[in-house]
Amino acid sequence: MTPKKFAYFAPASLKEAIQLLRVNEDAKVLAGGQSLIALMKLRLAAPAALVDITKTGDLLSYIREGKGHLEVGALTTHDTLERSKIINKKFPILSDAASKIGDQQIRNRGTIGGSCCHADPAADLPTALTALESEFVVRGVKGKRVIPQSKFFVDTFTTSIAKDEILTEIQIPHTPPKSGSAYIKHSRREGDFAIVGVGAVVTVGPKKVCRDVRVSLGAVASTPIRAKSAERHLKGKTLDEGNIAEAAERANEEADPPSDMHGSRQYRLDMIKVFARRALNLALSRAR
């Protein structure tokens, strides 16, 4: 199929892009287009206008050090994330997630900002960013504001970005030394949407005690969520197989998963436990 008729704008600056979003009814930001165009082709989405932000001249593809956090430009592709040395070293959870998205062609064009704004609860990067307690920098007419992760994802396909705002950067707070992170997902094929996606960040204290832990879940609620009960259970305890397994048993308490042909609600609830345990163990093995 072909999309419905739409207007296409390729503004020369972010400022102009924001203006276009303001004045055009039902306009959508186009980044890599790997979700939006597919939906438009099936006519499941039919925006009146697309505002392409890849030609603004404002460089939105970067990975750089900020103050106490790493800054990732919204137009950074999945492929760049997957291959970035700094990401692989500091936040392997993100390269794990990026490497499992779709196929190479999709990873070449798909962007971290696009994935977050699309807000598919089964998407990989939003789940990974949830475990990292990332912050989202958006720009609008009135300037810049920073949205914490907990306020960013509102519902399935819905974020708290206003109609005339553009996500420009994602800020990932640095983890303390002796931290490790991992993202793994259960899917039918390598690059499919997650049946269950789990992100884990662990910080090891003296005597292998869990100083901090964050577990995030994808594809099991209307947004990525945190498995708080599992986190509470593990925090302060020795990071051994038994405690991790016990915590993982609690990982599905906050989940409210849907059913589809690849996984029923019950199957997903069960798989959360398995993958939470595996993600925690992997994250722990990377903690240095």
């Binding site: 094929r189 690059g191 589809d260 042909m261």
Partner: peptide
């Protein structure tokens, strides 16, 4: 959803 095997 109709999962055709890829090279992987």
């Amino acid at each position: 959803d109709y999962l055709v095997p890829t090279a992987l």
